[in-house]
Amino acid sequence: MTDILQLLIYGLVLGSVLTMGAIGVSMIFGILRFAHFAHGDFMTLGAYLGLSFISAFGLSSWWALPAAMVGMAVIAVFIDQVLYRRIRRTQPVILLIASFGMALILRSLVQLIWGSDNQTYASGIQFPWQLDWLGGMRLKPDHLWIMLISLGLVAGVHLFLTRTRLGKAMRAMSDNMDLALVSGIPAERVIMVTWVIGGALAGAAGVFLGIDTRLHPVMGWTTLLPVFAAAILGGIGRPYGAIAGGMIIGVSMEMSTLLIPAAYKPAVAFAIMVGMLILRPQGIFKGTV
């Protein structure tokens, strides 16, 4: 029983990381109509930007988070302006190819600048709290922070989407592009904000991943498949679905280690995704098929 609770915690931590990525993927798909394949490498780059920031100023691990979020928001807008904007007028699938190329460009940049070895934010082992009232379950402070901060970020995205003009404009564009455009919604500004939010959340996901495990140039790429699985599960183009999808995928991946070798964790995400594509391709919360 303790084992299961313990895996549930790990699953929720992983789910928080996946949610941060999946919200971005889902929003970008809703507005720009393409699956953004560079999102995993956005996460990687964010994690490394955070690493450089804290080592340059000698700060503690968690300072990596704001640095990565701001850095990735700027870089995401920059990449959109330099590359994606130029090919947006053609078919969305050309954007998909471009983002796939961008994924490799970013990864090789990370390898060039930071090298291919494993790195960590802080050396040493963090002692977990032992929760006796929960059957001796262990909880690392970092894990608690990851869950709490992602809860806060999700709440922030929710408030932005429901309470601000720009957030409403974004939902309108995602629901019905043509209707939104004829009613005078500033498309370019909405697209830019989409990249700001998507980039910042990808940066946060990268830092969470780096704090939870370690930093490596392929850390984001290997997380991309579960992130897409989460986005599809929740209904692609639906940011709220991404939260449910992220948590379901994260918990299932960790729980699966009770039954199958841990090396096949990504296969669980994939299997859930394939099952979803066969049974209900529009996702739990009806997205865009």
Partner: peptide, 17 residues
């Protein structure tokens, strides 16, 4: 090796644009 991938990636983007 990373530089080679970078060059091919940039080549693709230049062709696409």
């Amino acid at each position: 090796a990373a530089l080679r991938v970078l060059l091919i990636g940039v080549l693709l983007q230049v062709i696409l644009v």
